[in-house]
Design a protein around this nucleic acid. Structure first.
Lengths: 135, 135
DNA sequence: GTAGAGGCTGGAGTTGACTCCAGGTCAACA
DNA sequence: TGTTGACCTGGAGTCAACTCCAGCCTCTAC
Protein backbone atom coordinates (compact mmCIF):
# COMPACT_ATOMS: atom_id res chain seq x y z
CA UNK A 1 0.00 0.00 0.00
CA UNK A 2 1.15 3.53 -0.77
CA UNK A 3 0.79 6.89 0.92
CA UNK A 4 -0.71 9.79 -0.99
CA UNK A 5 2.77 11.23 -1.42
CA UNK A 6 4.02 8.02 -3.02
CA UNK A 7 0.90 7.83 -5.15
CA UNK A 8 1.58 11.35 -6.37
CA UNK A 9 5.17 10.50 -7.13
CA UNK A 10 4.24 7.36 -9.02
CA UNK A 11 1.28 8.62 -11.03
CA UNK A 12 2.44 12.07 -11.99
CA UNK A 13 -0.36 13.94 -10.26
CA UNK A 14 0.21 16.31 -7.36
CA UNK A 15 -1.03 15.38 -3.90
CA UNK A 16 -3.57 18.18 -4.06
CA UNK A 17 -4.83 16.97 -7.41
CA UNK A 18 -5.34 13.45 -6.13
CA UNK A 19 -7.33 14.75 -3.18
CA UNK A 20 -9.25 17.04 -5.52
CA UNK A 21 -10.24 14.15 -7.75
CA UNK A 22 -11.48 12.30 -4.74
CA UNK A 23 -13.40 15.35 -3.53
CA UNK A 24 -15.26 15.79 -6.80
CA UNK A 25 -16.05 12.12 -6.95
CA UNK A 26 -13.86 11.26 -9.90
CA UNK A 27 -12.04 8.59 -7.92
CA UNK A 28 -13.47 6.63 -5.07
CA UNK A 29 -12.03 7.21 -1.60
CA UNK A 30 -9.08 4.90 -0.94
CA UNK A 31 -8.65 2.88 2.21
CA UNK A 32 -7.35 4.62 5.28
CA UNK A 33 -4.73 3.66 7.81
CA UNK A 34 -5.95 3.28 11.41
CA UNK A 35 -4.75 6.82 11.95
CA UNK A 36 -6.79 8.14 9.02
CA UNK A 37 -4.11 8.48 6.36
CA UNK A 38 -5.04 7.57 2.79
CA UNK A 39 -3.60 4.29 1.65
CA UNK A 40 -3.53 3.39 -2.04
CA UNK A 41 -3.42 -0.10 -3.53
CA UNK A 42 -1.67 -1.10 -6.74
CA UNK A 43 -5.05 -1.05 -8.44
CA UNK A 44 -5.72 2.47 -7.21
CA UNK A 45 -2.39 3.55 -8.69
CA UNK A 46 -3.18 1.83 -11.96
CA UNK A 47 -6.44 3.72 -12.18
CA UNK A 48 -4.76 7.02 -11.38
CA UNK A 49 -2.08 6.39 -13.97
CA UNK A 50 -4.62 5.68 -16.64
CA UNK A 51 -6.45 8.87 -15.66
CA UNK A 52 -3.19 10.72 -16.08
CA UNK A 53 -2.81 9.28 -19.53
CA UNK A 54 -6.39 10.18 -20.51
CA UNK A 55 -5.93 13.64 -19.12
CA UNK A 56 -2.90 14.28 -21.27
CA UNK A 57 -5.04 13.61 -24.30
CA UNK A 58 -7.45 16.32 -23.25
CA UNK A 59 -10.34 14.35 -21.82
CA UNK A 60 -12.27 16.63 -19.46
CA UNK A 61 -12.78 15.51 -15.89
CA UNK A 62 -16.53 15.29 -16.36
CA UNK A 63 -16.02 12.98 -19.30
CA UNK A 64 -13.64 10.81 -17.34
CA UNK A 65 -16.20 10.69 -14.60
CA UNK A 66 -18.83 9.50 -17.02
CA UNK A 67 -16.41 6.97 -18.35
CA UNK A 68 -15.43 5.57 -14.96
CA UNK A 69 -18.95 5.82 -13.79
CA UNK A 70 -19.41 3.00 -11.65
CA UNK A 71 -19.15 0.03 -12.26
CA UNK A 72 -19.22 -3.23 -12.76
CA UNK A 73 -16.70 -4.71 -15.04
CA UNK A 74 -18.00 -6.54 -18.06
CA UNK A 75 -15.27 -9.14 -18.30
CA UNK A 76 -17.62 -12.06 -18.54
CA UNK A 77 -21.19 -10.94 -18.72
CA UNK A 78 -24.22 -13.17 -18.99
CA UNK A 79 -26.35 -12.80 -22.08
CA UNK A 80 -28.83 -11.39 -22.58
CA UNK A 81 -27.53 -8.33 -20.72
CA UNK A 82 -29.75 -6.55 -18.28
CA UNK A 83 -31.14 -3.28 -19.57
CA UNK A 84 -28.93 -1.44 -17.15
CA UNK A 85 -25.80 -3.17 -18.34
CA UNK A 86 -26.63 -2.62 -21.96
CA UNK A 87 -27.14 1.05 -21.25
CA UNK A 88 -23.84 1.28 -19.41
CA UNK A 89 -22.03 -0.40 -22.28
CA UNK A 90 -23.69 1.79 -24.85
CA UNK A 91 -22.87 4.91 -22.90
CA UNK A 92 -19.21 3.94 -22.60
CA UNK A 93 -19.07 3.08 -26.27
CA UNK A 94 -20.45 6.50 -27.12
CA UNK A 95 -18.08 8.43 -24.87
CA UNK A 96 -15.06 6.48 -26.08
CA UNK A 97 -16.09 6.77 -29.70
CA UNK A 98 -16.48 10.51 -29.48
CA UNK A 99 -13.21 10.91 -27.70
CA UNK A 100 -11.48 8.67 -30.20
CA UNK A 101 -12.56 10.91 -33.04
CA UNK A 102 -11.22 13.94 -31.25
CA UNK A 103 -7.99 12.21 -30.39
CA UNK A 104 -7.43 11.13 -33.94
CA UNK A 105 -7.97 14.66 -35.19
CA UNK A 106 -5.58 15.85 -32.53
CA UNK A 107 -3.08 13.22 -33.57
CA UNK A 108 -3.12 14.43 -37.15
CA UNK A 109 -2.88 18.06 -36.07
CA UNK A 110 0.05 17.22 -33.85
CA UNK A 111 1.88 15.40 -36.63
CA UNK A 112 1.38 18.44 -38.77
CA UNK A 113 2.70 20.88 -36.22
CA UNK A 114 5.64 18.62 -35.42
CA UNK A 115 6.52 18.59 -39.09
CA UNK A 116 6.34 22.35 -39.36
CA UNK A 117 8.37 22.76 -36.22
CA UNK A 118 11.08 20.46 -37.50
CA UNK A 119 11.28 22.41 -40.71
CA UNK A 120 11.71 25.65 -38.83
CA UNK A 121 14.30 24.12 -36.57
CA UNK A 122 16.25 22.79 -39.53
CA UNK A 123 16.15 26.19 -41.09
CA UNK A 124 17.55 27.91 -38.02
CA UNK A 125 20.07 25.16 -37.46
CA UNK A 126 21.24 25.65 -41.00
CA UNK A 127 21.75 29.36 -40.38
CA UNK A 128 23.84 28.62 -37.31
CA UNK A 129 25.93 26.09 -39.25
CA UNK A 130 26.57 28.58 -42.02
CA UNK A 131 27.53 31.13 -39.43
CA UNK A 132 30.00 28.71 -37.90
CA UNK A 133 31.43 27.93 -41.34
CA UNK A 134 31.74 31.62 -42.18
CA UNK A 135 34.03 32.16 -39.25
CA UNK B 1 -12.37 40.08 -47.05
CA UNK B 2 -14.38 38.53 -44.27
CA UNK B 3 -16.32 39.88 -41.28
CA UNK B 4 -15.50 38.59 -37.82
CA UNK B 5 -18.64 36.46 -37.93
CA UNK B 6 -17.50 34.79 -41.13
CA UNK B 7 -14.00 34.37 -39.76
CA UNK B 8 -15.47 32.65 -36.72
CA UNK B 9 -17.56 30.38 -38.89
CA UNK B 10 -14.61 29.46 -41.10
CA UNK B 11 -11.92 28.94 -38.48
CA UNK B 12 -13.85 27.20 -35.75
CA UNK B 13 -13.29 29.87 -33.10
CA UNK B 14 -16.07 31.93 -31.57
CA UNK B 15 -16.28 35.65 -32.31
CA UNK B 16 -15.42 36.43 -28.72
CA UNK B 17 -12.41 34.17 -28.84
CA UNK B 18 -11.09 35.85 -31.96
CA UNK B 19 -11.41 39.27 -30.32
CA UNK B 20 -9.83 37.86 -27.17
CA UNK B 21 -6.80 36.60 -29.07
CA UNK B 22 -6.41 40.00 -30.61
CA UNK B 23 -6.74 41.66 -27.21
CA UNK B 24 -4.00 39.57 -25.63
CA UNK B 25 -1.74 40.13 -28.60
CA UNK B 26 -1.75 36.61 -29.91
CA UNK B 27 -2.96 37.81 -33.30
CA UNK B 28 -2.31 41.19 -34.81
CA UNK B 29 -5.28 43.52 -35.34
CA UNK B 30 -6.89 42.96 -38.73
CA UNK B 31 -7.78 45.73 -41.12
CA UNK B 32 -10.95 47.68 -40.48
CA UNK B 33 -13.75 48.81 -42.74
CA UNK B 34 -14.21 52.60 -43.05
CA UNK B 35 -16.91 52.22 -40.40
CA UNK B 36 -14.54 50.42 -38.02
CA UNK B 37 -15.62 46.80 -38.48
CA UNK B 38 -12.90 44.16 -38.47
CA UNK B 39 -12.11 42.80 -41.88
CA UNK B 40 -10.11 39.59 -42.27
CA UNK B 41 -8.02 38.59 -45.27
CA UNK B 42 -7.48 35.04 -46.50
CA UNK B 43 -4.07 35.14 -44.84
CA UNK B 44 -5.62 36.19 -41.56
CA UNK B 45 -7.98 33.24 -41.79
CA UNK B 46 -5.11 30.91 -42.60
CA UNK B 47 -3.29 32.09 -39.51
CA UNK B 48 -6.38 31.67 -37.36
CA UNK B 49 -6.94 28.19 -38.72
CA UNK B 50 -3.40 27.20 -37.96
CA UNK B 51 -3.87 28.57 -34.45
CA UNK B 52 -6.93 26.39 -34.14
CA UNK B 53 -4.79 23.48 -35.16
CA UNK B 54 -2.08 24.37 -32.65
CA UNK B 55 -4.67 24.78 -29.95
CA UNK B 56 -5.94 21.31 -30.59
CA UNK B 57 -2.48 19.98 -29.90
CA UNK B 58 -2.75 21.39 -26.42
CA UNK B 59 -0.34 24.28 -26.73
CA UNK B 60 -1.04 27.06 -24.27
CA UNK B 61 -1.72 30.49 -25.71
CA UNK B 62 1.56 31.81 -24.34
CA UNK B 63 3.39 29.02 -26.13
CA UNK B 64 1.59 29.74 -29.36
CA UNK B 65 2.59 33.33 -28.98
CA UNK B 66 6.21 32.26 -28.75
CA UNK B 67 5.73 29.92 -31.68
CA UNK B 68 4.27 32.65 -33.87
CA UNK B 69 6.76 35.15 -32.58
CA UNK B 70 7.53 37.02 -35.67
CA UNK B 71 10.05 39.71 -35.64
CA UNK B 72 12.50 39.98 -38.27
CA UNK B 73 12.68 37.20 -40.77
CA UNK B 74 16.00 35.52 -41.44
CA UNK B 75 15.27 34.49 -45.00
CA UNK B 76 18.52 35.75 -46.40
CA UNK B 77 20.84 36.97 -43.71
CA UNK B 78 24.34 38.30 -44.20
CA UNK B 79 27.15 36.36 -42.62
CA UNK B 80 28.65 36.72 -40.20
CA UNK B 81 25.45 37.43 -38.27
CA UNK B 82 25.28 40.30 -35.85
CA UNK B 83 25.41 39.26 -32.23
CA UNK B 84 21.79 40.24 -31.85
CA UNK B 85 20.69 38.10 -34.75
CA UNK B 86 22.64 35.12 -33.56
CA UNK B 87 21.03 35.45 -30.17
CA UNK B 88 17.55 35.69 -31.68
CA UNK B 89 18.18 32.61 -33.77
CA UNK B 90 19.59 30.67 -30.85
CA UNK B 91 16.65 31.62 -28.68
CA UNK B 92 14.14 30.49 -31.29
CA UNK B 93 16.01 27.28 -31.79
CA UNK B 94 15.83 26.62 -28.08
CA UNK B 95 12.12 27.41 -27.78
CA UNK B 96 11.23 25.32 -30.78
CA UNK B 97 13.46 22.45 -29.68
CA UNK B 98 11.78 22.33 -26.31
CA UNK B 99 8.34 22.42 -27.91
CA UNK B 100 9.31 19.67 -30.22
CA UNK B 101 10.38 17.37 -27.42
CA UNK B 102 7.15 17.94 -25.57
CA UNK B 103 5.06 17.49 -28.67
CA UNK B 104 6.80 14.28 -29.59
CA UNK B 105 6.22 12.90 -26.13
CA UNK B 106 2.60 13.91 -26.42
CA UNK B 107 2.42 12.31 -29.84
CA UNK B 108 3.61 8.99 -28.49
CA UNK B 109 1.27 9.19 -25.50
CA UNK B 110 -1.59 9.97 -27.80
CA UNK B 111 -0.82 7.04 -30.08
CA UNK B 112 -0.80 4.87 -27.01
CA UNK B 113 -4.11 6.06 -25.69
CA UNK B 114 -5.70 5.84 -29.11
CA UNK B 115 -4.62 2.23 -29.29
CA UNK B 116 -5.98 1.45 -25.85
CA UNK B 117 -9.20 3.23 -26.60
CA UNK B 118 -9.70 1.27 -29.78
CA UNK B 119 -9.17 -1.95 -27.91
CA UNK B 120 -11.76 -1.01 -25.34
CA UNK B 121 -14.17 0.07 -28.01
CA UNK B 122 -13.73 -3.22 -29.83
CA UNK B 123 -14.33 -5.03 -26.63
CA UNK B 124 -17.58 -3.21 -25.92
CA UNK B 125 -18.66 -3.47 -29.52
CA UNK B 126 -18.11 -7.17 -29.31
CA UNK B 127 -20.33 -7.38 -26.25
CA UNK B 128 -23.08 -5.52 -28.06
CA UNK B 129 -22.73 -7.83 -31.06
CA UNK B 130 -22.96 -10.90 -28.90
CA UNK B 131 -25.99 -9.41 -27.23
CA UNK B 132 -27.63 -8.85 -30.60
CA UNK B 133 -26.78 -12.39 -31.66
CA UNK B 134 -28.17 -13.81 -28.42
CA UNK B 135 -31.56 -12.35 -29.10
C1' DG C 1 -35.13 56.27 -43.70
C1' DT C 2 -35.88 52.81 -40.69
C1' DA C 3 -35.70 48.02 -38.94
C1' DG C 4 -33.00 44.46 -37.70
C1' DA C 5 -28.86 41.74 -37.86
C1' DG C 6 -24.46 41.95 -36.88
C1' DG C 7 -20.33 44.47 -34.86
C1' DC C 8 -17.93 47.74 -31.54
C1' DT C 9 -15.70 48.66 -26.64
C1' DG C 10 -14.40 48.10 -21.84
C1' DG C 11 -15.11 45.56 -18.30
C1' DA C 12 -17.29 42.08 -15.38
C1' DG C 13 -18.45 37.20 -14.78
C1' DT C 14 -17.81 32.22 -15.43
C1' DT C 15 -15.76 27.70 -15.78
C1' DG C 16 -12.56 24.08 -15.14
C1' DA C 17 -8.91 22.54 -12.83
C1' DC C 18 -6.30 23.01 -9.78
C1' DT C 19 -3.32 25.15 -5.64
C1' DC C 20 -2.64 27.07 -1.25
C1' DC C 21 -3.57 27.89 3.61
C1' DA C 22 -4.37 27.53 8.66
C1' DG C 23 -4.58 24.92 12.21
C1' DG C 24 -4.47 20.57 13.60
C1' DT C 25 -2.98 15.03 13.50
C1' DC C 26 0.08 11.03 12.59
C1' DA C 27 4.36 8.35 12.40
C1' DA C 28 9.17 7.41 12.69
C1' DC C 29 13.33 8.24 14.63
C1' DA C 30 17.06 10.15 18.18
C1' DT D 1 9.60 12.28 24.68
C1' DG D 2 10.28 15.59 21.58
C1' DT D 3 10.97 16.95 17.02
C1' DT D 4 10.33 16.71 12.27
C1' DG D 5 8.18 15.79 8.06
C1' DA D 6 4.26 13.93 5.84
C1' DC D 7 -0.75 14.06 6.06
C1' DC D 8 -5.53 15.64 7.50
C1' DT D 9 -9.85 18.96 6.62
C1' DG D 10 -12.66 22.73 4.90
C1' DG D 11 -12.46 26.46 2.55
C1' DA D 12 -10.41 30.32 0.07
C1' DG D 13 -7.54 31.81 -3.77
C1' DT D 14 -5.55 31.49 -8.43
C1' DC D 15 -5.06 31.07 -13.29
C1' DA D 16 -6.07 30.38 -18.15
C1' DA D 17 -9.24 30.86 -21.33
C1' DC D 18 -12.91 32.22 -22.45
C1' DT D 19 -17.99 34.28 -22.34
C1' DC D 20 -21.32 37.67 -21.46
C1' DC D 21 -23.14 42.33 -20.95
C1' DA D 22 -24.64 47.22 -21.65
C1' DG D 23 -24.86 50.73 -24.41
C1' DC D 24 -23.74 52.30 -28.67
C1' DC D 25 -22.47 51.93 -33.95
C1' DT D 26 -22.57 50.00 -38.91
C1' DC D 27 -24.57 47.91 -42.76
C1' DT D 28 -27.93 45.98 -45.76
C1' DA D 29 -32.54 45.39 -47.32
C1' DC D 30 -36.86 46.89 -47.91
Amino acid sequence: MYSIGQAAELTGFSIDTIRYYEKIGLTKPPERSPGGLRSYSEDDLKLLSSLHCLKRTGLALEEMKAFLQEGRCFANPAFPLSGEDREAIESRTRILGEHLIRMEAQYRALADVIGQTKEKLDFYQDLLNKEAAAK
